[in-house]
Nucleic acid binder design. Structure first.
Lengths: 192, 192
DNA sequence: GATTATACTTACCTATAAGTAAGCAAAGGT
DNA sequence: ACCTTTGCTTACTTATAGGTAAGTATAATC
């Protein structure tokens, strides 16, 4: 028994891995418990239903996003830095865990998801879009990027390309993601 | 009992719907059989294992792809026409069934898929990439599109953006896909 | 007209899923 | 010293999954 309870954290860590490698319906409590050496019911103690676990994960994702973007959102700053940070985060995560984007994981099962989880996923996504929209806006205004059209639509397109690329990378090899990132940069007028 | 056996076709139709709306692990034989008003074992008669069903679906996708692209691949032609056809196909499919791309459906569960199904998915994807690469090549040469970098990488990026957009559209509304298509066109120098 | 293949159904099996209820050991507060 | 909360385990339930074996009605073949 840990000091406070690091079991809860370990559950979430493992669940995050599994979610991004198999999708929400692709893993079970058993996959978590057997890995941690605890019983199934221990997971249910911390997260009574699978939905609760998923909600906790979405919350954590949102916390991570906010940590990396709150200063930029509040005061502005280098859009290029934010974007490159995002690329690095994405590719690193993908290389380490061969995992897909959380949005991708949820979106496949989205039609069968309970309402609260759908809402949480949707608002997390809206938050991500808002952040990248601001990055696009600021970046174009400051002359760091060049693109035509609505910044929000461009932001959504970039997110979509990365989400798709992470998935395609599993089928076709990890370098596919690097290629897509390179192309997205090029499409924003950035040097290779 | 149908003339020859349209049950098999109906199974595949329904399975295709389900695959694209829930992912490979998101539907069961029961979902198909109950919809068709037959028993579970009837599906097993036509497709002993779920893998067999999935393989048949991939084969069908490949057939559809070839039907729409073989002439272009053989003789060249209007790249713009091919691309617009692809956009229309994608958006229509998405609007009608609120469904994701087959690649997306398989890629989420990819790590747990049997080898033969992985191979089939991979080679179908390679075929799709090859086709769109040629579209990009011809389109740029003929001056229909403008983009920088490797045609294959550009093709992969476009596919990734559409795959990602179809998934994000489920969470955030169907107009997201239209936006992404518009942005992709714009990024290729096409008029809105 | 007997045989065989087709296209199923009925009935079953085994594994696994999510989830619950009750019990228990240890730590913390009073 | 006693009670309560925390953090689990044991033992169970119900539902569903993929899959199989054996039987049956119809249609085609010889």
């Amino acid at each position: 028994m840990g000091r406070i309870s690091d079991t809860r954290e370990q559950i979430m860590d493992r669940a995050a891995q599994l979610l991004m490698s198999r999708g929400f319906n692709g893993f079970s409590y058993r996959d978590i418990s057997s890995h941690l050496g605890v019983k199934n019911a221990a997971i249910h103690y911390h997260f009574p239903a699978k939905t609760d676990l998923a909600l906790a994960l979405v919350d954590e994702y949102r916390r991570i996003l906010r940590k990396g973007t709150s200063e930029f959102m509040a005061y502005g700053g280098s859009a290029l830095e934010q974007l490159e940070g995002f690329f690095i985060f994405t590719t690193k995560q993908c290389h380490v865990g061969r995992c897909i984007c959380p949005f991708g994981a949820f979106s496949v099962d989205y039609n069968e998801l309970p309402d609260d989880l759908r809402d949480a996923t949707q608002s997390f996504m809206e938050e991500s879009i808002k952040w990248l929209t601001r990055v696009m806006e600021v970046g174009r205004t400051e002359g760091e990027f060049s693109f035509t059209g609505d910044p929000r639509v461009k932001a959504v397109t970039v997110l979509a390309a990365l989400q798709g690329a992470r998935q395609m990378a599993r089928i076709h090899g990890i370098e596919l993601l690097n290629d897509v990132v390179a192309q997205v940069r090029q499409d924003l007028g950035l040097a290779t």
